[in-house]
């Protein structure tokens, strides 16, 4: 069937104004939920600097043992969320990329040298670096996606990376495993040097 189009420009003008004036449909559940979650889940994994630092937190926790083993993975998401909060408010944080790279370098060195500082110092060090990671996540939500599910995604991904680090860190129970763990720490530190060089170049 042929549709006869109106030729009067005023008809198009009214139709356009009508379309612009319509109220938006605020879909409560479906709008961008899945995409937001997947983007959030992929965000910490998509950058090797993030991955190295997150796994190093778990490795160091496993190496230090309780209570650092649980204190570090509990502290990190909370302080990371604070960094994300700052990012969402638009408060700038200088040297975010360098800070992330430095976190991989410092945490890698801590594992490589089996550094055992007081618990508060370890928690403060991890918390300070968490702010940089959170700030980077908090400022990079793509348009049209759900902020809630994006946040859930990147918190879950970060936590799972810590768990992966703790899981690998179990090798610390065996003498050969302790050496291997220190080797892994050295590898993380080397990655940190590379990313720091890239961030500062």
């Amino acid at each position: 069937m042929m549709v006869k189009m109106p030729r009067d420009p005023r008809t198009f003008l009214f139709a356009g104004v009508s379309a612009l004036a319509a109220m938006p449909a605020l879909a409560h559940v479906q709008e961008g939920q899945a995409a937001g979650f997947l983007t959030g889940l992929a965000h910490p994994v998509s950058g090797l600097d993030h991955v190295l630092a997150m796994i190093a937190v778990g490795l160091w926790g496993a190496q230090l043992g309780a209570p650092a083993l649980w204190l570090l993975p509990v502290t990190f998401p909370l302080v990371m969320a604070f960094g994300g909060f700052l990012g969402l408010l638009g408060i700038p944080l200088p040297g975010v990329e360098a800070g992330i790279a430095l976190s991989a370098l410092a945490l890698g060195l801590a594992v490589a040298t089996s550094w055992r500082p007081p618990l508060a110092v370890a928690a403060l060090l991890v918390a300070a670096f968490a702010v940089f990671h959170g700030h980077a996540h908090g400022t990079e939500l793509p348009e049209g996606q759900s902020g809630l599910t994006y946040s859930i995604g990147f918190v879950v991904a970060t936590g799972l990376l810590h768990l992966a680090g703790i899981g690998i860190g179990v090798i610390h129970r065996w003498p050969a495993g302790r050496t291997a763990l220190r080797g892994l720490g050295a590898g993380v530190a080397a990655g940190g040097v590379y990313f720091l060089w890239r961030a500062l170049a």
Binding site: T75, L78, G147
Partner: peptide, 12 residues
């Protein structure tokens, strides 16, 4: 801690 982190981000 994960739930609290998501809550803080939601405030943001």
């Amino acid at each position: 801690s994960w739930i609290a982190a998501v809550g803080l981000l939601l405030v943001g």
